[in-house]
Design a protein around this nucleic acid. Structure first.
Lengths: 212, 212
DNA sequence: TACAAAACCACACAAATATGCGGTTGTAAA
DNA sequence: TTTACAACCGCATATTTGTGTGGTTTTGTA
């Protein structure tokens, strides 16, 4: 039996969802709220498995609501409901801690299926949303070591790394068994490649571009 | 008409997929390879919309294959095929540039649907995989700004930020409307808090600890 | 083989930095 | 009210850095 709670301001939708859930074997709607505030007030006393939360709500919006709920109960599975698949909102909701994402026009059978998937550790979402999530997450990770000008040679990467560790020219020279002037030379080339003029800026850029 | 290419070493699966695709209106299998090498060799001359690529391949594996293909044609839509939903592999494949993820036991109708979704800009994947992706991507983002000794004051964070942007003391002073000596003072305190002795090290540490 | 790129070395000098000392003011907790 | 801390300001000086110039050697590849 999956215990579901609903947070949705539109009475028709809310009651429709509750009826659907309660009318299906294996599902039970044990809470129904028309705003985040009252949900946050009560949810601790209920043993909820999955929350369906609307994003556009009067007062505190769904994203804020997710944040607060997750703060209190980090393991809670929350499925967002929305009318439009808007990139920005999706991103925020997932960052806030939502587990998945449903558009309201989702047919009842899929909706029930999604609730089950969330409960079993999945993250149901449309493939379009998934692509957005992947893109965002790749931005953060790869940060495309963009080919071309900013490609540092192995030696140069070593130098930048040692710089980032707080070594001065002499320290780098000692560690790489080269002269201080060579270090200076490498750093000059690094500056050229990264379009910077100070150690600090070079290291910041290198880290952010995941070059080191 | 969606033009599909297949890279799969198992002859039975490969020919089965090709037959399925060619036997469906709106889909056409225009290439079929049993390893990445031959695919990479030929794919530029074909006008491929979607690639189905096995992950476990003899010689170059599917993940390497994706990397190389994306390098040559960044916009290419590649759907990975695999037997198991393994976290590590999924993660790597998506990072490498794959658009989605299918387990081989996927029924034909879903498979065709997935190809269509990819072609329309989606990223089909099971909800379990989606959860993994989301978790990974959240790790990358949040990255706990560890509280404690390394807590910089607001002002100090501003200073570190400006440092990381390549400003010198005078530049920072100008932007914050304070004297160079005050900047100097802030930086001294930052060094103390972060246990470093150079700008470069401070910025590196601040970025890595997500303080800025 | 010839050519480019990476890695190496050296000298000079103006500019910027790190570190020491000294201080004032305002706010918030003990 | 005292204590603590953030933010502010000033000065002196040895050290480090950034930038210019000039080179050699090694290595991979056309």
């Amino acid at each position: 039996m999956i215990n579901v709670a609903i947070v949705e301001d539109n009475k028709t939708i809310r009651e429709g969802l509750a009826a659907l859930i309660n009318g299906t074997t294996g599902y039970s709607c044990i809470g129904s709220f028309n705003d985040c505030e009252s949900f946050l007030d009560k949810f601790k006393s209920l043993s909820i498995d999955v929350v369906l939360m609307d994003i556009a709500l009067p007062g505190m919006n769904g994203i804020e609501g997710v944040k607060k709920a997750i703060e209190i109960e980090p393991g809670l599975d929350i499925l967002m409901l929305t009318i439009y698949e808007e990139s920005e909102v999706v991103y925020e909701a997932l960052c806030a801690g939502a587990c998945g994402y449903l558009v309201k026009k989702t047919p009842p059978s899929s909706l029930l299926e999604a609730i089950k998937e969330v409960h079993e550790g999945g993250s149901p979402m449309s493939s379009r949303i998934a692509r957005q999530v992947i893109n965002t997450f790749k931005e953060g990770k790869n940060a495309t070591p963009e080919k071309g000008e900013d490609q540092l040679s192995e030696r140069e990467k070593e130098v930048v790394n040692l710089l980032a560790q707080g070594n001065n020219y002499q320290g780098i020279a000692d560690r790489l068994f080269i002269s201080v002037d060579t270090v200076r030379h490498h750093i000059k080339n690094i500056y050229k490649k990264l379009h910077v003029h100070t150690q600090t800026e070079a290291v910041a850029k290198a880290i952010r571009k995941k070059l080191i």
